[in-house]
Simulated assay, not measured.
Amino acid sequence: MKTLLLQIFTWWNGQTIGTRFATWRFGKRVGEDELGNVYYEGGTTSFGLPRRWVIYKGYADASAIPPGWHGWMHYRTDVPPSKETYVAKDWQVAHRANPTGSPQAYRPPGSLVVAGERPRVTGDYDAWTPGS
């Protein structure tokens, strides 16, 4: 019952009722990434391109799409990562979701969330005043 209510009243917890119906009716599963997000394709856009969408595992956050799937979602490639054998280069780092709003977010010195004292102002800044 909770899942049904979440699908009716929220869009950020996985998929909505409309997305579930469209996926059931038109969606062809293309693949799944290492985070558990599932990718679909079906129908066409107004530009004649195949419509592509993702159903997130958990909270819907666009930064949770790995780079290979991001390229496929934005029509940079027609071959999804699930259908190719891609090997990352040694200089490429693993995908990391955007930590904004989480405990892993960057907190600069002097932030209200970080203990300690804000650094002193150096005096190298002159505020703008009208007419100067």
Results as ranks from 00 to 15, higher is better:
R25D: 08
G27M: 03
G27R: 02
G27F: 04
K28E: 12
R29W: 08
E32L: 06
D33L: 00
L35H: 04
N37R: 01
N37T: 02
V38S: 06
Y39H: 05
G42W: 09
G42N: 09
S46Y: 11
S46T: 15
S46Q: 13
S46W: 10
G48L: 06
G48F: 06
L49F: 15
P50A: 15
R51M: 08
R51N: 12
R51L: 11
W53E: 02
W53D: 03
V54G: 03
V54F: 04
I55N: 14
I55T: 13
Y56M: 08
Y56N: 02
G58H: 05
G58F: 02
Y59V: 06
A60Q: 05
A60D: 07
D61H: 09
D61C: 07
D61N: 11
D61T: 00
A62T: 12
S63M: 00
A64L: 03
I65C: 01
I65T: 04
I65N: 00
P66N: 08
P66K: 01
P66W: 00
P67Y: 02
P67I: 05
G68M: 05
W69P: 00
W69C: 00
G71C: 11
G71I: 01
W72S: 01
W72G: 01
H74S: 08
H74I: 04
Y75R: 08
R76V: 04
R76T: 02
T77M: 04
T77Q: 07
D78T: 15
V79W: 07
V79G: 04
P80L: 09
P80Y: 08
P81F: 06
S82R: 12
K83A: 12
E84P: 01
E84V: 12
Y86P: 01
V87E: 15
V87S: 13
K89P: 01
K89R: 14
D90T: 08
D90S: 08
D90I: 02
H95V: 09
H95L: 09
R96G: 01
R96S: 09
R96Q: 14
A97K: 12
N98S: 05
N98P: 03
P99V: 11
P99A: 13
P99M: 12
P99N: 12
T100V: 13
G101H: 06
S102F: 05
S102V: 04
P103L: 07
Q104G: 01
A105N: 10
A105T: 10
A105I: 04
Y106T: 03
Y106I: 06
Y106Q: 02
R107H: 09
R107E: 10
S111V: 05
S111G: 11
S111E: 10
V114T: 13
V114H: 09
G116H: 04
E117V: 09
R118S: 15
R118E: 15
R118K: 15
